[in-house]
Design a protein around this nucleic acid. Structure first.
Length: 399
DNA sequence: AGGTATTCACATGAAACTATTCTCTGAGTTAGG
DNA sequence: TAACTCAGAGAATAGTTTCATGTGAATACCTGT
């Protein structure tokens, strides 16, 4: 055993393809952001008045995941702060990601987090929300300053709660005497603004910027840029970058996805003891990412969901087409075996609906005449992963 | 033959219920003055 | 005496059940030829 491990460690140390893997990680901030000049300029133009001590318009930014929204805004933030040292008043810019669970998915938590970032303290729990608001107001209104709040993934914060939080924030300026607040909302859901209270909507989106997805050529640039720093020279085979970009472009131009792909491909090549990243590694990486995504999803689902999925998978073995009724019967069987309580068909039906949403299965409503109307269920899990999914399910359910 | 009525096996929606998590209030505690 | 802490009451939420209503077409049942 020891000998074997030694070998592994040795080879890992010897022929590392990576120079700096961190560059490919999602949270890395590069110095240059290719193909976003126009957007960055727009953002900067809108926020620039804050350098003169004026209140800027609230800004709302849309765009799919991996289109550089967060990156661009962070970049502008840093540039503004660099300049801010020379201004006669204070300029503060706070960035907050509302999606991080357990940190900021209720207005209380978001406020608590903001207060913490601004140097105040709040008990983790126990205070009424209004008093936290007041504390927040006190804290920022103590001195004359301009505060820019960047709320990343605002849609998440609003989806859970109501939009009252945003409403309060937009009205905040009225209560402040010294400080001016500007809001920058970032969201990847284009429809998000539509089901917002009109008052909030108009006030939050005084300005709007849309970040379009990257096309394949732009993705190539981005990848080349980063690959140069991430890998040693000449480790990337001909066409690899192009293929990476093409894959990611298919996925709505998601740059994050492209970088992941390249990184995982690198890891696979390295583990295989190869000196170069080849085209086949991209394919392998693609299916690995896909596989991990599915396995994660399956693993983190609640037990009842796993039971339903097990039922569907065990039926898939036997025949191509599955109907809700059959699936429900097998599911009941499984519940009895595992000693789990049986959910109603109504619920199982909506669980199946959720699987459809996640892309684990596909369903189609069909009518079978006298034999009723039902959903035709097909597993969308690639056959080569199915085995692993089953193992995960078996472990989780201790079958 | 051609038309329409029925019927199946669920889908889909809305409301009600329930267990768990959050928020809030006031009593008790601490610490500073 | 003001500020903090904490337990328990009450509110909010997520997950589920119950009840109600809808649905497309194969089949059964007419109806007049």
């Amino acid at each position: 055993m020891v000998v074997k491990l030694d070998k592994i460690f040795d080879s890992a140390a010897r022929n590392s393809l990576f120079k700096d893997k961190f560059v490919l990680q999602a949270n890395h901030t590069p110095e240059t952001i290719p193909h976003r000049d126009k957007e960055i300029e727009q953002v900067a133009a809108i926020l620039a008045p804050c350098l003169k001590g004026e209140k800027t318009s609230n800004l709302f930014i849309y765009g799919n995941t991996g289109t550089g929204k967060t990156l661009s805004v962070q970049y502008v933030k840093n540039e503004l702060l660099k300049r801010a040292g020379t201004t006669p008043f204070k300029l503060k810019i706070e960035y907050l990601n509302c999606k991080l669970k357990k940190i900021a998915d209720t207005d209380y938590r978001i406020l608590a987090e903001l207060i913490k970032k601004l140097g105040g303290t709040v008990p983790a729990t126990g205070l009424p929300t209004d008093s936290v608001y007041n504390k927040f107001i006190d804290l920022i209104d103590k001195e004359k300053q301009i505060l820019i709040l960047i709320l990343d993934e605002v849609d998440q914060a609003v989806k859970k709660k109501s939009d009252s939080f945003l409403y309060n924030l937009t009205r905040l300026n009225a209560e402040l005497t010294n400080t001016q607040i500007c809001l920058v909302g970032i969201s990847n859901d284009l429809r998000f603004l539509d089901d917002l209270d009109p008052r909030v909507k108009s006030s939050l989106s005084e300005e709007e910027i849309v970040f379009p997805p990257y096309n394949a050529l732009q993705l190539q640039d981005i990848l080349r840029n980063r690959a140069e720093k991430a890998f040693h020279k000449n480790v990337i085979d001909e066409g690899v970058i192009e293929k990476c970009a093409a894959f990611a472009a298919r996925e709505h131009g998601d740059a994050r996805r492209a970088l992941d792909l390249l990184r995982v491909a690198g890891e696979i090549a390295e583990r295989g003891g190869e000196k170069k990243i080849k085209l086949k590694h991209i394919d392998l990486a693609n299916s690995k990412i896909e596989r991990d995504k599915i396995l994660d999803l399956v693993e983190s689902d609640p037990k009842q969901f796993q039971l339903v999925l097990s039922a569907i998978l065990s039926l898939t073995e036997k025949n191509e087409k599955i109907f809700t009724g059959e699936a429900y019967r097998v599911y009941q069987e499984l519940c009895r075996k595992t000693g789990t309580e049986v959910l109603t068909q109504r619920r199982v039906s909506s669980i199946i609906g959720e699987f459809d949403m996640n892309g684990l299965i596909t369903t189609k409503n069909i009518s079978r005449g006298t034999y009723g109307k039902t959903r035709e269920i097909k597993s969308a899990i690639p056959p080569e992963i199915e085995g692993q999914v089953k193992v995960v399910l078996r472990d989780a359910l201790s079958l």
